[in-house]
Simulated scan of single mutants.
Amino acid sequence: MTALGVVFRPQLPPERLRSIVRAADGAGLDELWLWEDCFLESGIATSSAALAWSERLHVGVGLLPVPLRNVALTAMEVATLHRLFPGRVTVGIGHGVQDWMAQVGARVESPLTLLHEYATALRALLRGERVSTDGRYVRLDDVALDWPPLGPVPVLAGAVGPRSLVLTGEVGDGTVIDARVTPDGLRDALALVGEGRRRAGRTGEWPVVVYVLAATGPGARERVAAEAASSGHSVDGLGAAGDADEVAAVVRGLAEAGATTVVLQPTADEPDPEGFVRFAAERVRPLVPR
């Protein structure tokens, strides 16, 4: 099954979130994804509001930057969301943008070590375990949640580089990949994830969330190309632009390459974010096999 989502980009002001959520819920969008980008908006605060404002919408947070957040706090917040809105939220963690982490004094010498320690501790806390650990970065002394989730809670991990992709397969419960991949690039990335899973003896289903830069309407191709180039991610075949058939074809290509959720990432200059959500739910979704 392939789920289809849309990102509420935090370049939009927080007060705009409610109308996006209403549009997504009303149009039947599968998933709405949120970012915790410095220094824009909180991923947890926005996800809580989005869940409360909707009846059925699944909300994803991808990604929470681990250098910015104490692991016990993240465990408390994720557990609270799952108790309040069971089965309707997915949370991913990642290294964070290193320049931003440096700005707040949180950059670490070894992001890989931090993510490994953090994911291991977070998953244990969310399983209701009592955790003591004295790692290089993560230190907990007899910590357990009083209100752990009532069921299993997957923790997805995001990555770009090869070693980080391998790590997501070792310590995560799924992988989040940003919008710089084509279907061939996704296959290469998932081969690395698979290497990590084999190292850790991980088997079974593996959620793969992939963002894709997307636009429709006048100037769609030019907007996608301009944003990709400005981000330094200009690659042949990158992004999805055009009408519903053209966007759906890109979504299907990513699904065939291994994505279980494809999240359309509107350009920063998207003139009608609510309309884009309805376009995804009402026109693209019917063209993508479930």
Rank of each mutant, 00 (worst) to 15 (best):
M1I: 13
V6H: 11
V7A: 05
L12V: 03
L12S: 01
L17N: 10
S19G: 13
L32F: 05
E36V: 02
E41K: 14
I44W: 01
A49Q: 04
A50L: 02
L51M: 02
S54H: 09
S54C: 08
L63A: 11
L64Y: 02
P65A: 13
R69S: 06
L73S: 14
L73I: 15
E77C: 13
L81G: 08
H82W: 03
H82E: 10
P86F: 00
P86K: 06
D99C: 13
V108H: 01
S110Y: 04
P111W: 08
T113G: 07
L114I: 02
L115Y: 00
L122F: 02
A124K: 15
G128Q: 04
E129P: 09
E129W: 08
E129V: 06
R130Q: 09
R136G: 11
V138M: 04
L140M: 01
A144V: 08
A144L: 07
D146R: 13
W147I: 12
L150Q: 14
V153I: 11
V155P: 02
V160H: 02
P162C: 05
R163L: 14
S164Y: 11
G172K: 04
T175E: 06
T175Y: 06
A179H: 10
P183V: 07
R187L: 11
A189G: 08
G194A: 14
G196L: 09
R199N: 09
V210E: 00
V212E: 14
L213I: 08
A215S: 15
P218E: 01
R223G: 13
R223L: 15
A225V: 12
A229H: 13
G232P: 09
H233Y: 15
S234M: 09
V235D: 12
D236C: 06
E246R: 15
A248E: 11
G253P: 13
A257D: 07
A257V: 06
T261C: 04
L264W: 09
Q265C: 11
T267W: 01
T267F: 02
P271A: 03
A280T: 10
A280I: 09
R283P: 03
R285A: 15
